[in-house]
Each structure stands twice: as structure tokens, then as C-alpha cells.
């Protein structure tokens, strides 16, 4: 009912895809997100980092309502994220997500994993859905695995399938929650390469990751979180070479220190 006005009313210009204003969230008594303000433009690539438990996952999970924020406004793609089921559906259609532990559906083949959402959410004809799925599987370089099951693939391959599965919905925005941290070192590279290609194609991305090489290479902006707050954000060069906040310095020294 309210959709048509959403974009008009919200006076953020068309190029903004995510805007969070004064967002707060609690888990019970625990104040996990504190006064988050963030806006992301179309085509921007953002890397989020910070110590464990600082609320990075919670932040990006709020963007597609896997977690519910309790205070403040979130607009994604011009639609307000609230209790309205229609809004949630629409946002989830436009936002793809890749999880740390892949979360592929073990009882479906790779191809079926990729076709599930296009068929049941976008109502795409089967042949077309298959075409889309094969297209993106080719893009992540594993078309030959299409008929296998997730349990038969290596971790790196599984994560690339997960990326392809999200891409099959042709989302406007991709969220990555530590996509490489469950992988062995030799598999990290294949997943990062895929992500770099995606970035080079102009996809809007928000990545939670500690891969600083990746951040330097593709990020437009690095966001540092601590204790549920955004403590510092900057272009990668400035962020890494010239951190301003003491907490950032400490964090960087810890992860780059050895």
C-alpha cells in the first residue's frame, strides 16, 4: 500500500541504495548496535572490519531483516525496512547474501540450489531459470559441477556456488559475511578472485572480512566497528596508512602485526 510513495517521500537521491539512520539494536539487555548511521551509494564497495563480537554480522543481517532493529530507520533500495511483509519480501529480492558457512541446501543439487529462488520468488520459467543458473555458475567457474550435490564439493567450490546462488536473483546489492573465514588458505584465493571480479563488474557490495589485501584492492570505503559502533571510516589507503582512532590503530596492529 505504501510502496509507491516510499521512493518519493524519502528524499534520498536515486543513487543511494542503503541508508541507516540512528539505528539501535539490543539482544536482551545487550546493546549490540549503537547509533549506526551509514549510507551506501550504488556501485560502492564497502568493507566492514572490527574485532570479534563488535556487531558486524548483526549490522549486515539487519539489512535484509534476518535480524530486526528496534530503533531508527533503515531504507534499502528506497524501501523502508519495517514490519510490513511486502517490504521485507521486496528488499530480500534485491539483496543477495553470502554466509560464512555457505548454507547451501544439502538435499538439492547445485543447479537446483541456484534455481530455487528464481523459480519460487521471481516466478521465472524453468528453462530460463536454468539458463540463468548456468550463466552464473559459469561466471564463478564451476559449470561442470551443476548436477552434483553440495556435500561433494570442496569448501571453496561451495562458497562460489553460494555466490552464484545469490547472483541468480540478480540483486542490486550483495552482502558478504566473512565469506572466506571458514576456508582453507588455498581455497580463499579462488573465492576472493570471484569477489574481485564481481566488484570489477560494478556490483554494490558490503563485505564483512578481514582480508586486508582484498580491502585495499577493491574497497571504496573501509568501515571499522567496535562495541557496536562505527568508530572510523575512510578510503582504504587513508584507513590503513593513517588510521585516526586509537582503537583502529590497535586493531590494525593486531591483524597486520604478524
Amino acid at each position: 500500500m505504501a510502496q509507491p510513495q516510499n521512493t518519493a517521500e524519502q528524499s534520498v537521491d536515486q543513487k543511494t541504495i542503503v541508508s541507516m539512520r540512528n539505528v539501535n539494536k539490543w539482544f536482551g539487555q545487550f546493546h549490540v548496535l549503537r547509533d549506526i548511521n551509514l549510507s551506501v551509494d550504488k556501485g560502492e564497495r564497502i568493507v566492514v572490519c572490527g574485532p570479534s563480537g563488535s556487531g558486524k554480522s548483526t549490522l549486515i543481517r539487519c539489512l535484509n531483516r534476518l535480524e530486526k532493529h528496534q530503533d531508527g530507520d533503515i531504507f534499502v533500495h528506497g524501501i523502508e525496512l519495517n514490519n510490513d511483509v511486502k517490504n521485507i519480501d521486496e528488499i530480500r529480492r534485491e539483496v543477495g547474501m553470502v554466509f560464512q558457512h555457505f548454507n547451501l541446501f544439502p538435499h538439492l543439487s547445485i543447479l537446483e540450489n541456484c534455481m530455487l529462488a528464481p523459480i519460487w520468488v521471481r516466478k521465472t520459467p524453468r528453462a530460463e531459470a536454468e539458463e540463468i543458473a548456468m550463466h552464473f555458475l559459469t561466471r564463478v567457474k564451476i559449470p561442470e559441477q551443476a548436477s552434483k550435490y553440495p556435500g561433494q564439493l570442496s569448501g571453496g567450490q561451495q562458497q562460489r556456488v553460494a555466490i552464484a546462488r545469490a547472483l541468480c536473483m540478480q540483486p542490486q546489492l550483495m552482502l558478504f559475511d566473512e565469506p572466506t573465514s571458514a576456508l582453507d588458505p588455498e581455497m580463499i584465493k579462488e573465492v576472493l578472485d570471484t569477489m574481485v571480479e564481481l566488484a570489477d563488474d560494478g556490483m554494490t557490495m558490503i563485505c564483512v572480512t578481514h582480508e586486508m589485501g582484498f580491502a585495499r584492492r577493491v574497497a571504496d570505503r573501509v568501515i571499522f566497528m567496535d562495541e557496536g559502533q562505527i568508530v572510523e571510516q575512510n578510503e582504504p589507503e587513508a584507513f590503513f596508512n593513517n588510521p585516526k582512532s586509537d582503537r583502529t590503530k590497535l586493531f590494525l596492529s593486531q591483524i597486520l602485526g604478524h
Partner: peptide
């Protein structure tokens, strides 16, 4: 739980 979350993230009702 990740299974449900993954499906939700894809927009499946």
C-alpha cells in the same frame, strides 16, 4: 538454522 536464513535471504517466503 542457516538453512532457513539462507532461504529467507534469497527472498523465499
Amino acid at each position: 538454522r542457516g538453512q532457513t536464513e539462507a532461504a529467507y535471504a534469497l527472498g523465499v517466503r
